[in-house]
Design a binder for these strands. Structure first.
Lengths: 131, 131, 131, 131
DNA sequence: TTTT
DNA sequence: TTTT
């Protein structure tokens, strides 16, 4: 079924990089603050605080390049899970699993490109189009 | 900031229609089961169970036309809230506020159109395009 | 950069399956009619007619299961190209390259499952979650 | 039906603001260059060049705050039109009608907030939630 | 006709 | 607490 989420916002804290215990896969998690485009009854502009999960290569890119306050774009999907607390209560979690994270802050002058491109293998090839 | 969610899935139960206590605005809530397009290690196809909130006119359309098992498309945004339990614990809630709900089940023969169109006022008009 | 498109609509014709001349990769193309949710000044409900391109395995699934009038959900990205006409004019084309196509028509009774699931390799694994 | 597009990219030129001849409604148009996240066979990173249309109040905001090279996020829908050339050929146009444009460049120090918030009337109200 |  |  279709499950697609796109967000642009800022990290509330530095991202956290971990590795899965059994298979050693990189996972980075952070919360994205996405300001709403309307103000509440107190005249403040509220935000939604969305938990983000990133896997593998992109997890490590995120841990390297994102910090508290960084502007990021997320293209992913909603995932729901449940777990049981030590006190025996079932708790439900909703989070966004990112397929793609874009770093939207301006590039630092003395650095290099902060987002690597990857090669096109396994993708369609412009040079061989049938129409 | 950008906050956009698109889902297609099936209602896990009949929708629930309520009215806000102070202002009497219609709100419908339901959970959408969105099957994943991969199978888990047990070979089952899992799903994500996403809480949906619909306001006003569309809330009433949903209550009229959707039932447990109905196929629906949702175009909306993520919203997070927190509340305190009677036991004094802060709990976090993530839900999708629908801007637009599409009813994707085949139309019943003897019924009419099950999704009303609305007029175009307040929208741009094809007949007056400047280019 | 972020480039995401989600559509639900119906095929205006049967899909066309071809193979790229050099590399023999399957490509299916069709047009999706996406009705607008407002009516025009004549009180008709208009539609947008969106060209869709699907590659590889999904191209063949689409050619097998979709027909004129089929309801389909598309998750993909916008792609623009230019080409030169035989008369030497440059022409610009916009189309949607589908990452994922969902078949939304009700399943036929005597058939089987019309959308194959695929295994989870190369994806994160629920059973090994670090938090 | 569902028709949703989200893009992040940079303007290829300054935006153009016009007014519809009959009704005097503001319309701004520009092209958004959305870099692809893969490189082509020449090792260059390509882009898609997407025509954007913005109406009314947001049209004027865009004309005021966006320039060639500005980073912008677009939340909108695909629209297709056809028109006949003076030479009597039918030509097809695909463009994105923006519901929402976000200005993603860092704010200038000496300016103010460059994106106005608007009040919440006609929206649901957090303080009156039924559950 | 294309942006960083 | 989950749908086909």
């Amino acid at each position: 079924m279709i499950n697609r989420v796109v967000l642009v916002g800022r990290l509330t804290k530095d991202p956290e990089l971990r590795y899965t215990p059994n298979t050693g896969i990189a996972v980075t998690t952070f919360t994205l603050a996405v300001s709403r485009n309307f103000t509440n009854q107190q005249g403040e502009r509220d935000a939604d605080f969305v938990p983000i999960v990133v896997w593998r290569t992109q997890a490590e890119h995120c841990a390297n390049y994102l910090r508290k306050g960084s502007l990021a774009g997320i293209d992913g999907r909603i995932q729901t899970r449940s777990y049981d607390t030590p006190e025996g209560q079932r708790r439900f979690v909703t989070e966004i699993v990112a397929d793609n994270v874009r770093f939207l802050d301006p590039k630092q002058k003395s650095g290099g490109d902060n987002q690597e491109s990857y090669s096109n293998f396994g993708q369609e090839v412009d040079e061989d189009v049938p129409f």
